[in-house]
């Protein structure tokens, strides 16, 4: 098997690294770059905890060969905070206690980020659809939805 060098911009930092042809993006992020905020659940696209934003789009990184991400711009949960300050979404998740075990939180935060980037004033239903690709094993979603609603307000103001 021949390795190839890929280039990506991860959380604003440009990186180039050698990958196996069949290495998955989620493993490159977690195992090679230490970005363990991105979680692994099913590895089949069902649970959404591996979600990252690749070239502006929310995608499951467990189904993306690293080679496909070559040249791409990636945002993981680690890239949400700016200059030591949490993103409004992260703040609201804490305020509203929208976190229990936290396993789904990175996927939820990035789903919400992708949603608000595209639609700064989502309706309740649009928020539900926005996070429908991430399974929360704990909270029952209500507080997550409330957190996104108030973060949307604070992002706008």
């Amino acid at each position: 098997m021949s390795k190839s060098v890929i280039q990506m911009e991860v959380n604003g930092r440009s990186v180039s690294l050698e990958v196996e042809p069949d290495e998955m993006l989620v493993d490159v992020l977690r195992e090679r770059m230490g970005l363990t905020g991105t979680k692994v659940g099913c590895r089949e696209g069902e649970c959404g905890v591996c979600s990252v934003i690749l070239n502006g789009k929310l995608v499951p990184s467990c189904l993306i060969p690293a080679m496909k991400a070559d040249g791409g711009k990636i945002l993981t949960v680690e890239g949400l905070e700016k200059d030591g300050e949490l993103h409004p979404l992260q703040k609201e998740f804490l305020n509203k206690a929208a976190i229990q075990c936290g396993f789904c939180t990175p996927g939820m935060l990035l789903s919400a980020k992708a949603l608000l980037d595209e639609n700064p004033e989502p309706t309740l239903n649009e928020i539900k659809i926005g996070i429908s690709g991430v399974l929360c094993r704990c909270t029952g979603y209500r507080k997550i939805i409330q957190a996104i609603e108030s973060a949307a307000k604070s992002v706008r103001s």
């Binding site: 696209g45 959404g48 979600s51 789009k57 929310l58 995608v59 499951p60 189904l63 993306i64 789903s111 992708a114 949603l115 659809i129 926005g130 429908s132 690709g133």
Partner: peptide, 9 residues
């Protein structure tokens, strides 16, 4: 189809 993630990919 599927989820937002699957619809993007």
């Amino acid at each position: 189809i599927g989820t937002p993630q699957i619809r993007n990919l």
